[in-house]
Write a protein that binds this DNA or RNA. Structure first.
Length: 946
DNA sequence: GTGATTCCCTA
DNA sequence: GTAGGGAATCACC
């Protein structure tokens, strides 16, 4: 594309409407009206203006009502769901604000946005313009010519006039073209993405069809086959001409579709000769489409009405608010607009190599209202990692990197690590010096490894993103991409990956500085976008400020404490397990008549089903005969080998995952095991634990439980375990207000027994253990959003019988039934569910998903509020308990959290206090309509503390 | 070496 | 039926 031609920017407003609506959280303005789509559109239109140096532009929308395609084909778009009300009511404001932002808009009755864009693109190109079409719709790839380029702004944005390099870190597509997420499509780009050139896109779409618009193609033909055929036969006509030569099911389907294809082609072809007179002044001249100045006063009013505080501040002349130095402006009103920040802010990154420079930066971070920091280290293990360098960002674009332990022939002489840390220590440890970072729990460990106690942590972008949209990814690269329009250099770009990875210390200092400064810088800028969004939502603010931020610091402390294990005991168990495995292996070989790998499901399948001819009970996802526990259990009733395999599996699992592994995880310095709690992984708000996972230590079997004997207390101490009793059922009772459940918990009954008593109409005292077991399974099923199928499976009964039980249950516990129905309905309406404390869990597929996915989302909508509220409660409990331990200067330490259980290491002298206070604090974190109950156990090890 | 598959441990 | 982490095998590069 020529860089001298004037640029016309065409925006496919309709395609972005939907995407803005679905991509944005369900934001609400001051009066509770939906603003998510408006917000998304404004962000995108602002960003587009910044990124494309266009003189002329127009935002095109679909008009209401039928178009010529409906006349050709009445079923056109017939499948499409009506526009959601929450979006419909945002259309008028979107039109308004797009115009206020200076854009001409175009909406022509009877003409779809695509056709208007196609026509404008053709006319403009003929008049000597370079045309940029911004759309999320792949169909428009057919418009691409040397003068017409497509960009997809929601994903990736780059000025189209610039040479198009795939972003660093983008993987090559299989055919060697630019990565698919580099969304600038010129002719080579289209070929790379679709496998066919732009002038064959129509043919390609015709073959595939378009389910969204309800245009059929050839059945079973997707992108791969369509591209393959076109490559082979040159064009759709070529494919049609060779239809009888094409083999297989696809060929048959093609022959069936031959009569349809001409109509399909007509429908997917964008019309390039629409009459826009009367809608574009002086059509076909384009002068009327000049991009205008923004209407400041109008925008001010608009932003006020819809509660867009950040933009309001910005347009009212306020700077970013964080920095003395506002972001340098490139002559555009919106240059420091959040969504455009990183691309536009001039970068002033420094590499600090002498003491004077360091002192200067220490002064700057001391003055700055909020500083982002990031440590670079030599290890991913937070307890081992040592600093290689550290960076700070004080304002957008202003950051410094202090290299400390870079090695190699080209590495410059660097400041002494100890000197630098000593100089930084007062600021790092100053609780009144506000700091932020991305996952500062990690940096807290790293600094602690050097004897520095990081304080003054006010924000963490990992947790901000998690609180706002837990279901998305929260890596800094992803955040940069999502909110700043660029991902930045990735760690892999810098260090490589896998076996080829080099230590950070061997990275060139200049590159390391760029990377580290960019990370801190991005973190600061992402914060400027996310923090206002959290602040604006009282529920989310509470979760973030009162739960997640303090939990992060506490988790760092718990991880650092670690837990003492007895490696010798585990090694003895390993040895014993090894002996028994050896024996089992031999027995299995004898029965099978040959040796085979007992660890290989595939080989087990061959022996069991092929050689020995046992019946196949069920198949795996790939169609192979399953050998899982349930299957082997069934088979072991009639055959000897499956029982051996079951026993082998169980013991092998214990040995490899636990008794072998845990001793290897003991930290050489502390002689303890330090897990890592991932705070932003589980969408419901739970923690997860890894390296090692201490949340899945066996308990179900006596065999497995022995592993817990190795989790011990040091001399003079005991292990105390405190766990919430039936916390999720209690939460269900609270939310549903079901009288039966409320009463059962209120009276302190055994809830499963009480459930059985109701369901089976049996007096409480006469409930059999089997009835109780059924009730317990039902209760668990309810928490998981079960259906009859699941219940039948886990009880081993007919689906019909399971359905009867469920019906009976809902009859007796009508409040629970009502809760299930209303939470599903609410989730479908809002697209998310909430915990008692206001944590949000988005369920995108409850609206958009297909059958099974939608059903899955409905189950999540039932489970997530319970699991999530339980997660909130135990986090609050941990904080409350630790606060009390600190306040009364106790030495008792929290050593583990296992979802509804807290494990403590307690000096014997504090045992009485802990037994009394911990359950009291745990029960007191919230006042529900049922009491919370925490049960305490004490022992020399974790097993005996239960 | 890497990623998918299968299996299994926890709340 | 919910939410996680992880080991071993095996086909692939």
């Amino acid at each position: 594309m020529s860089d001298t031609k004037p640029i016309l920017l065409l925006v496919d407003g309709s395609s972005y409407l939907y995407r803005a609506y679905h991509a944005m959280p369900d934001l609400r303005g001051p009066e509770g009206v939906a603003t998510g789509a408006i917000h998304g559109m404004v962000a995108m239109m602002k960003r587009l203006r910044d990124q494309v140096a266009a003189e002329h532009a127009v935002c095109v929308f679909d008009a209401k009502g039928p178009t010529f395609r409906d006349e050709w084909y009445p079923e056109y778009k017939a499948q499409r769901a009506p526009m959601p009300d929450a979006l419909r009511e945002q259309i008028a404001p979107i039109h308004e604000v797009v115009q206020l932002l200076g854009w001409p808009i175009l909406e022509v009755p009877g003409i779809e946005a695509d056709d208007a864009i196609g026509t404008l693109a053709r006319v403009a190109a003929e008049a000597g313009h370079a045309v940029v079409v911004s759309t999320g719709d792949k169909d428009l790839a057919q418009l691409v010519t040397p003068d017409v380029t497509l960009i997809n702004t929601m994903n990736k944005a780059a000025p189209p006039a610039a040479a198009q390099q795939p972003p660093e870190g983008a993987r090559s597509a299989p055919w060697g073209g630019p990565a698919v997420d580099c969304e600038t499509l010129d002719i080579p780009g289209v070929i790379a993405k679709f496998g066919v050139p732009p002038d064959r896109i129509i043919d390609y779409l015709t073959l595939m069809g378009d389910t969204v618009d309800n245009v059929p193609g050839v059945e079973k033909v997707g992108p791969k086959t369509a591209a393959k055929w076109i490559a082979e036969y040159g064009s759709l006509d070529g494919v049609i001409a060779s239809a009888d030569k094409i083999k297989g099911v696809a060929g048959e389907n093609l022959r069936k579709a031959l009569d349809w294809l001409p109509m399909g082609r007509k429908l997917v072809t964008v019309k390039l000769d629409c009459d826009l007179s009367g809608h574009v002044p002086n059509w076909p001249a384009l002068e009327a489409l000049a991009l205008r100045e923004v209407d400041r006063a109008g925008l001010q009013d608009f932003y006020t009405r819809y509660g867009f505080k950040t933009w309001l501040k910005e347009i009212s002349g306020g700077a970013s608010g964080t920095s003395k130095a506002a972001a340098p402006v490139s002559g555009d009103l919106f240059a420091d607009a959040p969504a455009a920040a990183l691309a536009d802010v001039e970068r002033r990154y420094e590499t600090v190599l002498d003491m004077a420079q360091l002192q200067d930066w220490i002064a700057r971070i001391g003055r700055a209202p909020l500083v982002a920091l990031d440590t670079e280290t030599d290890s991913l293990d937070p307890m081992q990692a040592r600093i290689v360098g550290i960076s700070f960002a004080v304002a957008p674009g202003e950051a410094a990197y202090v290299p400390l332990r870079h090695e190699g022939p080209d590495a410059p002489v660097q400041l002494d690590l100890a000197d630098v840390l000593a100089a930084l220590q007062p600021w790092l440890e100053d609780a009144n010096a506000p700091k932020l970072g991305q996952n500062l729990k990690y940096d807290t460990h790293v600094l602690a490894n050097h004897g520095i106690a990081l304080r003054g942590v006010q924000h963490d972008t990992l947790l901000q993103s998690y609180v706002l949209e837990a279901h998305k990814t929260h890596g800094l690269g992803a955040l940069g991409e999502r909110y700043l329009g660029r991902a930045g250099v990735s760690y892999e770009d810098l260090c490589g990956k896998g076996a080829h990875q080099i230590p950070f210390a061997q990275v060139d200092v200049a590159k390391a500085a760029e990377y580290s400064c960019e990370d801190s810088d991005m973190c600061l800028q992402v914060h400027q976008i996310l923090w206002p969004r959290i602040e604006a939502e009282p529920g989310l603010l509470r979760i973030y400020r009162d739960i997640e931020m303090p939990s992060s610091a506490l988790l760092a402390r718990i991880e650092r404490t670690g837990v003492l294990i007895d490696p010798e005991l585990l090694q003895a168990q390993s040895h014993e397990l090894g002996q028994r495995l050896l024996a089992l292996e031999q027995e299995a070989y004898d029965i099978a008549g040959q040796p085979f790998n007992l660890g290989s499901p595939k080989q087990i399948g061959e022996i069991l089903f092929t050689k020995l001819g046992l019946p196949v009970i069920k198949k795996t996802a790939t169609g192979a005969p399953s050998t899982d526990e349930e299957v082997l259990e069934k088979l072991s009733l009639d055959y000897p080998l499956p029982a051996k395999l079951l026993e082998y599996r169980g013991l092998a699992k214990l040995k490899s995952t636990y008794t072998d592994k845990l001793p290897l995880m003991v930290n050489a310095r502390t002689h303890r095991v330090h897990t890592n709690y991932a705070q932003a992984v589980a969408v419901t708000g739970r923690l997860s634990s890894n390296d090692p996972n201490l949340q899945n230590i066996p308990i179900r079997t006596a065999e497995g439980r022995r592993v817990r004997e190795a989790f011990v207390a040091p001399p003079g101490h005991v292990i105390v375990s405190a766990d919430y009793s039936q916390i999720e059922l209690r939460i269900m009772a609270h939310i549903s207000e079901d009288p039966g459940l409320l009463r059962a918990f209120g009276e302190g009954l055994d809830v499963h027994r009480a459930t059985a008593s109701e369901v089976f109409s049996t007096p409480l005292g006469e409930v059999t253990s089997e009835q109780r077991r059924y009730a317990k399974t039902i209760n668990f099923g309810l928490i998981y959003g079960m259906g009859a199928f699941g219940l039948a499976q886990s009880l081993g009964i007919e689906q019909k019988a399971a359905r009867d039980y469920i019906e009976l249950y809902f009859h007796r516990f009508a409040g629970v039934k009502h809760y299930m129905d209303s939470t599903k309905a609410r989730a479908a309406e809002l697209g998310y569910v909430e915990t008692l404390f206001g944590r949000r869990i988005y369920l995108p597929e409850i609206k958009g998903g297909n059958g099974p996915r939608k059903a899955g989302a409905e189950r999540q909508s039932i489970n997530a509020p319970m699991q999530g509220t339980a997660a909130d409660l135990i986090k609050l409990a941990m904080l409350a308990v630790q606060a009390e331990l600190d306040a009364s200067a106790k030495s008792t330490r929290i050593v583990m959290q296992v979802h509804d259980e807290l494990v403590f290491e307690v000096p014997e002298a504090e045992l009485d206090w802990v037994r009394r206070e911990v359950p009291r604090l745990m029960a007191g974190v919230a006042q529900l309509k049922v009491p919370l109950l925490a049960e305490v156990g004490v022992g020399p090890n974790w097993e005996q503390a239960h």
